[in-house]
Design a protein around this nucleic acid. Sequence first.
DNA 1: CACAAGGTACGATGCAAGTCGTACCCAGGA
DNA 2: TCCTGGGTACGACTTGCATCGTACCTTGTG
Lengths: 108, 108
Amino acid sequence: MPDEEGHPEPGEMELGKVLAALADPLRRRVVTELAAGPEGEARTCSSFALPVAKATVTHHFRTLREAGLIRQVNRGNSRMATLRRSEIEQRFPGLLALLLAEDARHRP
Amino acid sequence: MPDEEGHPEPGEMELGKVLAALADPLRRRVVTELAAGPEGEARTCSSFALPVAKATVTHHFRTLREAGLIRQVNRGNSRMATLRRSEIEQRFPGLLALLLAEDARHRP
DNA sequence: CACAAGGTACGATGCAAGTCGTACCCAGGA
DNA sequence: TCCTGGGTACGACTTGCATCGTACCTTGTG
């Protein structure tokens, strides 16, 4: 399984797919946590502790990857996920700020 | 059927519902057309000429209304739809600009 | 009044999405 | 070398969504 697979170019990212990906609360949580963390942070899928089975976690991360929101690369026996921050900001300006603002609204 | 029905307050608008509503291309088109038009513009459902049956149009406008994106009021024998511009901008700053920018990208 | 126009309500259908269990793979460490 | 941990692949199930036809309601108009 090659590293560069299912990662659309910034120009190929579709707003419909991005919005559909972010409509799911679990996927939105992943993106929000990455956006709230430091630039370039790489985390494993399991580090998010999503309350679903392993196969479901894989499904959600594939959806995020194919929408262009995250990048996944193999590193050793793990698969690290990073937020495609600059590409998202260039293609959909203000989107990440929107998610962070909404997140801050729910944890006082 | 009363006018004020299924219209959430700005504080009750849920990002998940809003994103799910905007993930559909037909619904996104309605919001984008309203956002591109003048402030306070009121249009009938049929004026958008969506390429689906009447019952489907009703379904899409209900989804938009329940997400809080549009307001529908009875006027004569029609039901006028207006964009809840200020509420959206207050609750999700930059969202409408995002939709307009994406729309401009697709019509040169 | 009768009729057309704009919408809604209801039920049905087909398809996509979220979820899971199981089996499997691959890299690292005991 | 075997085993464990992190992920994936596949198939199955269930729910939700978009779509439609039909019937119905309401308002305005000829």
